[in-house]
Design a protein around this nucleic acid. Structure first.
Length: 892
RNA sequence: GGGCGUUUAGCUCAGCUGGUUUAGAGCAUCUGCCCUACAAGCAGAGGGUCUGCGGUUCGAAUCCGUAAACGCCCACCA
């Protein structure tokens, strides 16, 4: 075996082995189920560091449950990601010289499916490289047959329940993709923009502003290009300075439209000029005002946000003809120039405001009036809030309960229709003849047929597709076909799922809605725990992004550090909900750890074994490590219940490197070319196997490899199903004397460290055997580990001895004669520093003990402890003083 | 404008309902070592007035108040 662990072949070999032996596959049986559904990555996506974090955590949970003997089912799959995928398909078509508009829906969908088949399993293949133990036989897709039927079924069900409606509403419009978006798909960015103060002339002649004499009102806006749609100017009836405008009319600058001044308390007194232009077609608030005062709307934009002057009154069109067909932002520049020329701009100020962008296309969204389908959400908020607030569903970390509550308490209806082709088509049908007469907007609602099958006759189907999340929210149910067959064996067995692992960025998009769907269609929570991961950032704290180039390619990392190394790297500093600052050095640490394990194994397997009886010191070591290991196992189990996975890994890491490699193996390692007793050898193999086991969820490959190497295993066997029955860590820890054994070994380690410390500070080579004066006999382990001969001298001998360096463990003093290596000055300095420290400590303790109120009020055991501290400190001080005196005598 | 969270060693973080030998871990740093498992290693060392201020208490990193800094979420102020 080489001295360096080489993950490459090993990983590929074991993954194939796991697949060949169907070790990830699950079928319902008598065991307790443990289910996780994967947050389906976009079907066209490639693996990034966020996935690595997320999927590693899921795999750890899943493998841990598998080791516990549960029937584990981790269902993988992908999401059709309608808007993102459609954008990619359009882009590719364009590269081929094809426009979407040249294609029929069916033709376009053929291209999209082709794309999906080409790219669909890339990311799933990459997950295998990471070691993810998904049940690949269950791989699903949000647009496969079962999932699609579930979506349509749910739509019809909601429509029947009166929870879905069609309506003309102001929605977030993505002009790039030309579709409506839900509120959640809009991202607001703070922007430096301008505040334009425009002059609206008063129509009534002779009316002027009494304060300034101006014959115009000043209206401030950030969007001057929307003035073509102005219908009114609104003032607050209470605002003094604008009283003169009451009942008057104004002329929209550059357009010439005469519009009324209306009054509403909505306008904030003191903000801007107090005059608000009302453009109902292009602003949500203005729309509300328009509704309230029954104003008409003039939509001046085309669906791709270019100016459409055909909507302007015919007589005014010559005024605005030049803007027809312009892009909205070009038009803004132009109209500002033109108004300047007409002296209709009072001033322009810098202004910071928030602009909404489409999450997917990153284009500023346009509030747009359009006919869409919505879900009434109050009902869902009502059923989804309580289970989270009362912890039936637990969030880790809990702070997200607040975020969740906040959203549900201010819930708005969910716009679920999209003007896209790639997605589930809305199962609503319109009578063709009637539709021809009325048009879509005025088509009577009660004549719409919503059905999972197309109605007989001359009907046309709604053109829209459904929001991707409308299929995702059913995922935990639809994966087990629980929508159409809510009582089938699989859904009854696997649902509710155990844990959901996802990012907090989709808490509303997905988590909340799954909870709603879970209660609505299964009457039960979809999962019991939600683990929110943090965001993976680079070590400077920046989000990883393509444009910054700070996002490493996970496959490249796996190549360099091995999958186990990468898994450890990503997990090491990733407590739930905290962002993780990723750095290659973390993976390096993971790789190094693999190497450590590998070399421990080499040592153990390389030992000669004899049937002779084990020396007593071996048995001491074995007893001690049995307890040490048991303790860590208990600790790790406890950490798992709290989802503190990085801490669990760290506990195992410390056990393995410090306690096992650093102490235990050194304790039992026989002298060169001397054999180890079989008894000790076998105990050591058990330890090693146990450690591989607790480590397996974190580092599946190396642990499986060494588990097989450790001893002969039958074909098809796996560490995942290793027999556990002969080990009970809880019982070991309850054995009599366990505590003392652990404490004694800690003391022994400190004595050894004391000797090593002396050795290091005096530059005494490790090979040189030292003498250690101790007040009582010590375990021979000390001799071995410290390379020292322990002597228990009588007092006189010790006093005679010159050049002794001493150290204290607990309250006991140990001495090492170091001959010429001693430097009395230096030694005195050290002892005096220690003395000062001990005296300071004692003062602190005395301050407490001499405080009557402390002695009276504190718990007796606390007072008792302080007394012990005092006693120990005094004893140590006495010892130190003695040593100092002895040194002084020697010096003289 | 609301709400939430964070602030402990150079870095990333533990430290739960106040008291466990005057604050812990990993990494990084420094010193010494190629000692036949491992230099992707071993042994040793240094490093923090627990963000500031006030309060409660016999006792505060821990509880309360307050200020600041940073971060996140939500909200229609043109």
């Amino acid at each position: 075996m080489e001295s360096k662990y080489n993950p490459k072949d090993i990983e590929a070999r074991w993954y194939q082995y796991w697949l060949d032996n169907k070790l990830f596959h699950s079928e319902p049986d008598g065991r307790e189920p443990y289910t996780i559904v994967i947050p389906p990555p976009n079907v066209t996506g490639v693996l990034h560091m966020g996935h690595v974090l997320n999927e590693t955590i899921q795999d750890i949970l899943v493998r841990h449950a598998r080791l516990e003997g549960k029937n584990v089912c981790w269902v993988p799959g992908t999401d059709h990601a309608s808007i993102a995928t459609e954008a990619k398909v359009i882009k590719r078509l364009k590269e081929q010289g094809i426009n979407k508009s040249d294609l029929t829906r069916e033709q376009f969908l053929q291209h999209a499916w082709a794309w999906t088949e080409e790219h669909g399993d890339i990311i799933l293949k990459q997950l295998r490289k990471l070691g993810c133990s998904c049940d690949w036989d269950r791989t699903s897709f949000t647009m496969d047959e079962t999932r699609s039927r579930a979506v349509i079924h749910v739509f019809c069900d909601l429509y029947k329940k009166g929870l879905i409606y069609r309506g003309l509403r102001m929605v977030n419009w993505d002009p790039e993709r030309q579709t409506a978006l839900s509120d959640e798909e809009v991202i607001y960015h703070e922007e430096h923009s301008k505040f334009y103060y425009l002059r609206y002339k008063v129509a009534e002649s002779g009316v002027t502003n009494p304060a300034t004499g101006a014959d115009y009102a000043i209206v401030a806006t950030t969007r001057p290009e929307t003035i073509f749609g102005d219908i009114a100017v609104c003032i607050n009836p209470k605002e003094e300075k604008n009283q003169w405008l009451k009942g008057k009319h104004l002329i929209v600058p550059g357009v010439g439209r005469q519009i009324p001044v209306i009054e509403d308390r909505y306008v904030e007194i003191g903000f801007g000029t107090g005059c608000l232009k009302v453009t109902p077609a292009h602003d949500v608030n203005d729309y509300a005002l328009g509704q309230k005062y029954n104003l008409k709307t003039i939509d001046i934009f085309t669906p791709d946000a270019h100016l459409n002057m055909d909507t302007v009154e015919e007589e005014l069109r010559p005024n605005v003809a030049k803007y027809h067909g312009m892009d909205r932002f070009d038009c803004r520049k132009q109209i500002v120039e033109d108004l300047k020329g007409l002296d209709l701009i009072e001033k322009i100020e810098d202004y910071d405001n928030k602009v909404g962008y489409s999450e997917r296309t990153n284009v500023p969204i346009e509030p747009r009036l359009s006919l869409q389908w919505f879900i009434k959400m109050q009902h869902f908020a009502d059923i989804a809030l309580p289970p989270v607030m009362n912890d039936e569903i637990q969030f880790y970390p809990t702070k997200y309960k607040n975020t969740y509550r906040n959203w549900l308490e201010n819930i708005k209806d969910w716009c679920i229709s999209r003007q896209l082709w790639w997605g589930h088509r809305i199962p609503a049908y319109y009578d063709a003849e009637l539709l021809a007469q009325t048009g879509l907007e005025n088509y009577p609602n009660d004549k719409i047929i919503v059905s999972d099958t197309a109605p007989e006759g001359n009907y046309v189907q709604d053109e829209g597709a459904l929001d991707t999340w409308f299929s995702s929210w059913l995922w935990p149910i639809s994966l087990f076909d629980g929508i159409e067959h809510p009582d089938n064996e699989e859904i009854r067995y696997y649902y509710p799922t155990a844990d959901l692992v996802t990012g907090p960025d989709i808490i509303f998009f997905w988590v909340a809605r799954m909870i709603m769907a879970g209660y609505e269609w299964q009457g039960k929570m979809p999962f019991r725990h939600v683990y929110f991961t943090g965001i993976v950032r680079d070590k400077l704290g920046r989000k990883m992004s393509k444009s910054l180039g700070n996002s490493p390619d996970p496959l490249d990392l796996i190549e360099r550090f091995g999958a186990d190394g990468v898994r450890m790297g990503i997990l090491l500093s990733a407590p739930a909900g905290n962002d993780i600052l990723y750095d290659d050095s973390l993976c390096e640490q993971g790789r190094n750890f693999c190497n450590k394990i590998w070399n421990c194994f080499r040592l153990i397997k390389g030992l000669d074994v004899t049937d002779a009886e084990a020396p007593y010191s071996d048995r001491e070591a074995v007893t001690w490590f049995t307890l040490m290991l048991s303790r860590t196992e208990q600790e790790v189990e406890d950490l798992f219940t709290k989802y503190r996975l990085s801490e669990a890994l760290m506990a195992i890491y410390r056990l393995f490197t410090d306690e096992f490699s650093g102490w235990y193996l050194e304790m039992i390692k026989p002298a060169y070319q001397t054999p180890l007793s079989r008894q000790t050898y076998e105990a050591t193999l058990v330890f090693f196997e146990r450690m591989l086991r607790i480590l397996h969820p974190f580092m599946p490959f190396i642990t499986e490899e060494l588990w097989h190497e450790l001893m002969e295993r039958t074909e098809g066997s796996t560490i995942m199903a290793a027999d556990q029955s002969d080990w009970n860590s809880a019982e070991f820890l309850q054995m009599e004397g366990a505590e003392q054994t652990l404490a004694k070994m800690e003391e022994l380690k400190q004595i050894v460290a004391g000797v090593r410390n002396v050795r290091a500070s005096k530059n005494i080579p490790p090979k040189e055997k030292l003498t250690l004066y101790a007040p009582t006999e010590l375990s021979t382990l000390v001799n071995k580990l410290a390379n020292a001969e322990v002597e228990v001298p009588v007092e006189e001998n010790k006093a005679q001895e010159s050049s002794i360096v001493s150290f204290i463990v607990g309250t006991t003093e140990y001495g090492i004669p170091v001959g010429n290596f001693i430097n009395v000055e230096e030694e005195l300095k050290k002892l005096e520093a220690d003395l000062a420290h001990q005296e300071g400590f004692l003062r602190g303790v005395m301050a407490k003990l001499s405080n009557e109120r402390f002695v009276q009020n504190a718990k007796p055991e606390v007072v008792e402890l302080e007394r012990k501290k005092k006693h120990d400190a005094e004893s140590r001080i006495a010892t130190l003083k003695e040593s100092i005196a002895a040194l002084h005598k020697q010096n003289a």
